[in-house]
């Protein structure tokens, strides 16, 4: 039983405070759906979870261990799907996928690639080079990547972009299977993806104006010496 949680996360991008005081917790088989207006920090949160960004404060833990303590282990159990499909135009679909499988050290890689291609119904494209793929086919190839190799956590940033209705249903099906096998899925989406009772995390709830946050930081700094002074006085007495 795996447990993925974040406590009191604050995310600062450049000089903008994206969100603060965000906590969540997910267990094996859970799905967390991220909601919020544009710029609320859905992508930032997913990047934090993947380990691409470091939180300004707070911690992300897997089974109680901070993910930054053992990055390789976190990367091995996580599949991240960003906005970009990472497909090389001159390589075939199979060659594109092969690299990511090799980096994960997947055993019986060719069979695993076949299974992933079949699951997304793009097996007929396996010898087609990236440049001839439509945007939906590219997205399916990117989705095929997350089926290759064992993983326990899927971080999907707008996975439905470029997919038709039918593919969205397939994606929902893949997510359901992954959860049934004990996986945790965190995803953001603009359209309704048919996922069974997801936990909803609304990022608008964690938006705090920069002014308030700065004031809070000042309070903490102000408090530190005042707390310290009485003890030093006591020590003197």
């Amino acid at each position: 039983m795996a447990d993925f949680s974040g406590s009191d996360l604050t995310c600062l991008r450049g000089e903008r405070l994206v969100f603060g005081g965000l906590s969540f917790s997910a267990k094996s088989g859970d799905a967390v759906m991220l909601r919020g207006r544009n710029g609320a920090g859905k992508s930032s949160l997913l990047r934090l979870m993947a380990g691409l960004l470091a939180p300004r404060s707070g911690a992300l833990c897997w089974n109680g261990e901070n993910i930054s303590d053992d990055r390789a282990a976190h990367h091995a159990r996580t599949h991240y799907l960003g906005h970009q499909d990472a497909i090389k135009p001159v390589l075939t679909v199979r060659d594109n996928l092969r690299l990511w499988g090799q980096l994960r050290g997947v055993a019986a890689l060719e069979a695993a690639i076949d299974r992933a291609l079949n699951a997304l119904q793009i097996h007929h494209l396996s010898r087609v080079t990236g440049r001839y793929l439509s945007s939906g086919q590219k997205r399916r190839t990117a989705l095929a990547r997350i089926l290759i190799g064992d993983s326990h956590l899927w971080l999907l940033d707008e996975p439905t972009v470029g997919l038709d209705r039918e593919s969205c249903a397939e994606l929902a099906q893949l997510i359901a299977e992954f959860r049934a096998n004990g996986g945790i899925v965190v995803y953001s989406t603009h359209i309704d993806l048919d996922v069974e009772n997801p936990t909803i995390l609304d990022l608008d709830d964690f938006a705090i104006p920069m002014v308030e946050w700065l004031a809070e930081q000042d309070d903490i700094e102000d408090m530190a010496p005042t707390k310290g002074t009485p003890t030093s006085q006591e020590a003197a007495q």
């Binding site: 380990g51 691409l52 390789a72 990367h75 091995a76 991240y80 970009q84 990511w100 980096l103 994960r104």
Partner: peptide, 9 residues
Amino acid sequence: ELLTLSPVS
């Protein structure tokens, strides 16, 4: 991005 996130160093 994906290379950064790979389990290989």
